[in-house]
């Protein structure tokens, strides 16, 4: 089963910037993920100031350039994992947040876990 996980939090980082220890712990976590075969790929997202939202409301398409100051939680990064059950994906998400808890005092956010599906509606393998 393939899952895509998004890590989301307040982009303005009221708790301060990520300390070096976080990067180190995240690096180790990713290394472990590759070595146990669960991590397929991962990536970080740039600040919303570098992005835009294209929306369709009341039959009108509008473009809103970043930063998206109104949104409380924004996606900061993603990972594609290959696991055997949803619980495994949840456990990996829990560990990701544990790393934040241990290494980034004050950080708050969430990890959204979504199963990937193929074009024909079957679960992606």
């Amino acid at each position: 089963m393939r899952f895509m996980s998004f890590i989301k939090s307040d982009e303005s980082m009221p708790w301060g910037p990520p300390p070096p220890a976080l990067f180190e712990a995240m690096g180790q976590f990713a290394k472990e993920g590759y070595e146990n075969g669960t991590l397929v790929e991962q990536g970080g997202l740039g600040a919303s100031g570098q992005g835009a939202i294209v929306s369709l409301v009341d039959n009108t398409i509008t473009v809103l350039d970043g930063p998206f100051t109104e949104a409380k939680e924004l996606i900061g990064g993603y990972a594609v994992t290959e696991v055997r059950t949803k619980e495994e994906a949840i456990e990996l998400g829990r560990r990701l947040l544990q790393i934040h808890l241990d290494n980034w005092p004050g950080w708050q956010g969430s990890c959204e876990i979504r199963q990937l599906f193929a074009d024909d509606g079957a679960p992606a393998t």
Binding site: N36, T85, E91
Partner: peptide, 14 residues
């Protein structure tokens, strides 16, 4: 028990 099974799957090899 499902969560434990998940941990087991992730960790048993190592």
């Amino acid at each position: 028990s499902r969560a434990i099974a998940a941990v087991w799957r992730l960790e048993s090899t190592r």
